[in-house]
Nucleic acid binder design. Sequence first.
RNA 1: GCGGGUGUAACUCAACUGGUAGAGUGUCAGCCUUCCAAGCUGAAUGUUGCGGGUUCGAGUCCCGUCGCCCGCUCCA
Length: 496
Amino acid sequence: MASKNRLDKIVSLSKARGFIFQSSEIYGGLSAVYDYGPLGVELKRKLNQAWWSAMTQKHENIVGLDAAILMHPTVWKASGHVDSFSDPMIDDKQSKMRYRADLLIEEHIAKLHQNGNDERAKQVQTLLDTSGTRKSVNEDLYDIIMEEQIKGPDSGAFDWTEVRQFNLMFKTQFGATASGEDSEVYIRPETAQGIFVNFVNALNTTRQQVPFGIAQIGKAFRNEVVARQFVFRMREFEQMEMQYFVKPGTDSEEYQRWKENRFNWHKNIGIRPSKLRFHDHPEDKLAHYAKEAVDVQYEFPIGWQEVEGIHNRTDFDLGAHQKFSGKKMEYFDPRTQERYIPYVVETSVGLDRTLLMVLCDAFREEEVPGDKEGSVETRTVLKMHPGLAPITAGIFPLIKKPELQDVARKIYEELAEDYKVLYDEKGSIGKRYRRLDEAGTPFCITVDFDGLEDQTVTIRDRDSMKQERIGFDNVGEVIRSRMKNWTPDDSEPDSR
RNA sequence: GCGGGUGUAACUCAACUGGUAGAGUGUCAGCCUUCCAAGCUGAAUGUUGCGGGUUCGAGUCCCGUCGCCCGCUCCA
């Protein structure tokens, strides 16, 4: 309960300060679609940049790519998304629970086996395997459930809706006069396929040799059955993916290596290590393309949830594209004279989820001494990594006096060369500090009368609220070094 | 999508069994102000989510619809 309030507060703050708005709000909103406001877009760009430089700039064998969102429809047949990304669902009218129709039947088959009714089990299995050949898949599955009188696991009732297909991919029309099935295309549900279909292009143009990787940041779209929990699960979201092509046999070792590498990235952007963990996928729950899979999870207010997935995708994708396109997806190793389809280790992180993680990890409500003697008030502050903060520094004249304003303006203009900074002279100084605390701004530079004498200003630290007096000319340098040496404070408990 | 809950100013919430929509916070302007949401004065913002219905009269009752929250399935 307390933790639920925490997410609510973060949602409220996001809206109040301009991080995240609901899409099309004036029209009543669009479910599970969100817009990034003035502060949100700065934070998002900085995260995007942090990932891009960590992957492409700091690995000489990783190259970038920006593939189109629209792709040839066969891509999604080859990838398996057309088949496995649409689930036949059925609802129990009594218990109001929803099930996957095919899984219900499989459970039923298992039960038949248990009861020694192997003959019957085999028959049903055949019916299940051939569903879609008599009528539509949905109708065939429905018929099996009816004939076998499969009951609702939770209610024990036999009171079903029809079987309906939930296709997670968005479809759209290709061509202005589009008509018929041929012109239907999908809007990509993942960015990875854009990398796979460009594998040979990248190989031929970059002189890379296996092992090497292709990195890409881009939008993906999924019609989630249930899309909720703020920006955690959205219909339109942004992925930061890297596909690493390796020699078969070295895949597990590379998978381990990337697992560690990616975990460290999350720590490097300032997330408290105590809030991060791995979560291995059990073998029976692996996606259709994966041999090994692990999540990097963060402890959100809604519990431990996946932020990034690291998968050993084997040669599933390249193999499938070779088969469907008829084009060779092989790599020839000039040294060993070997020819093979590379295995792929994928790292795939949700940009929006990462942003939400940063907000959740940074959000604190602190008790600080109030204005009156002995009183206590709450300070809301986002203690995020200074390098990620939407606004790096606020520059204030202590009060509205021309001497102070002039100096503050000058410092503002100097800092604006390197950072996103804000000049503010309105209201009390305390109010200006607190407002920027909520924006996660790590530094505030204040020009006062004492400083005019000896060419100094005060720099106020967001996390500790402590001030230090530094010279006019040192401001940029102090910001730079503090940014570099910042570490998250993991000692204090979350405020609720 | 199904079931349950819910919707009043930018935010938090008030408005009796149906009778003129309000407060605090925030925002903006002015004054004051030498370091942590201070003080004083003033201002702006609502077809009560949207659309219908009942009624002399609807924020309040009824129906529909949309969004949000919780559960079911899936996933970055």
